[in-house]
């Protein structure tokens, strides 16, 4: 069935096509042409750091030192990638980041959608209080709480584990509100019909509501994955063993390290960028929509 019918937030807008009512006079055309030039130039400038990192990673170190701003000076090689891969445990960092981000996505989607479902479809005593508490949570600056959080996890004996990274982030108030507004858009008749058929609430949640929530699930999942993959401060504190670190924490130890190993450092940076950039290129539209719909930062 069409999910678009029950989609209150995620709407796809075609790029606006102007000109039908615009008076196609000279000033308008000139303005649009100027605008196009400006934006395109700016966008190209924005791509330079990526291009620069990539090109540098393919050059030889002595050549970079001799002609720092030359794009091409004979021969590219992937040698820096081999040595970057061998000199730091990038493989373990990838695995750690992947496991942590995946667990974060699963738990965030599950528990946030469950409470949102309860808030929409179940009349329970204390519901208003639960709603207010979650709303207040939107304003809690959790990043500020690293120190007491650290003490808590040490007391629980969870330091250095994946759980220490995953658990603090999964009760995400923003995600609850994304699911809440989405589930509210699903026709109540569907739920009522299932109730009359004798379906349990768990069944209604997991087999009727959740399948219809796919756009909300993908928005929350993608943004949770990115946030979790890029998290720096908390993993830096909790994961102290080099091998147990995530990509951002591991890479940060390379900043200001061997200053002459330009190519190798840039190769590490490129390897650190690649996974999420690949995800981004595949899901560009969904990611942009997710950001627009939630305003998570």
């Amino acid at each position: 069935m069409s999910t678009a019918a029950v989609t209150p937030t995620a709407t796809v807008h075609p790029p606006r096509r102007r000109g039908s009512a615009d008076r196609n006079d000279a000033s308008s055309t000139a303005f649009n042409r100027l605008a196009a030039t400006c934006v395109t130039l700016f966008a190209l400038i924005w791509l330079i750091p990526f291009a620069w990192a990539f090109i540098t990673s393919l050059r030889a170190n002595d050549d970079i030192a001799a002609n720092p701003t030359a794009f091409w000076s004979g021969g590219f090689s992937f040698a820096a990638y081999t040595s970057a891969w061998e000199s730091s445990p990038l493989g373990s960092w990838y695995v750690n980041s992947f496991i942590i981000s995946t667990l974060a996505v699963i738990f965030t989607v599950l528990i946030c959608s469950m409470v949102a479902f309860a808030l929409v479809h179940l009349d329970f005593r204390g519901k208003a209080a639960v709603f207010a508490v979650i709303l207040a949570g939107l304003m809690l600056p959790t990043e500020a709480l690293i120190l007491p959080q650290f003490m808590e996890f040490r007391a629980l004996g969870l330091l250095g584990t994946y759980w220490a990274i995953v658990l603090p982030g999964v009760a995400l108030p923003v995600a609850v509100f994304v699911f809440h507004s989405f589930i509210k858009g699903i026709p109540v008749a569907l739920v009522e019909a299932a109730r009359i058929d004798g379906a349990s609430w768990w069944r209604i949640y997991s087999q009727i509501v959740m399948p219809l929530c796919r756009p909300a699930i993908s928005a929350v999942a993608i943004l949770t994955f990115i946030t979790s993959w890029n998290a720096f401060l908390w993993p830096l504190l909790v994961l102290t063993q080099t091998k147990s670190q995530t990509i951002p924490v591991g890479l940060s130890s390379l900043v200001g390290g061997a200053a002459i190993q330009y190519a190798e450092t840039m190769a590490s940076a490129v390897l650190g960028i690649l996974p999420l950039l690949a995800v981004f290129l595949l899901l560009q539209r969904q990611i942009a929509q997710g950001v627009a719909n939630t305003g998570i930062k």
């Binding site: 966008a43 190209l44 924005w46 791509l47 750091p49 990526f50 620069w52 990192a53 540098t56 990115i226 993959w229 890029n230 720096f232 990509i247 951002p248 924490v249 591991g250 890479l251 940060s252 390379l254 900043v255 200001g256 330009y262 450092t265 840039m266 590490s268 940076a269 650190g272 960028i273 999420l276 950039l277 995800v279 981004f280 560009q284 990611i287 942009a288």
Partner: peptide, 19 residues
């Protein structure tokens, strides 16, 4: 062009800019 940098980890951004 504009949004791709946002998905890059801070450490990778710093590596590139430090260079």
């Amino acid at each position: 062009a504009f949004f791709a940098p946002f998905v890059v980890p801070s450490a990778a951004v710093c590596l590139i800019f430090a260079f």
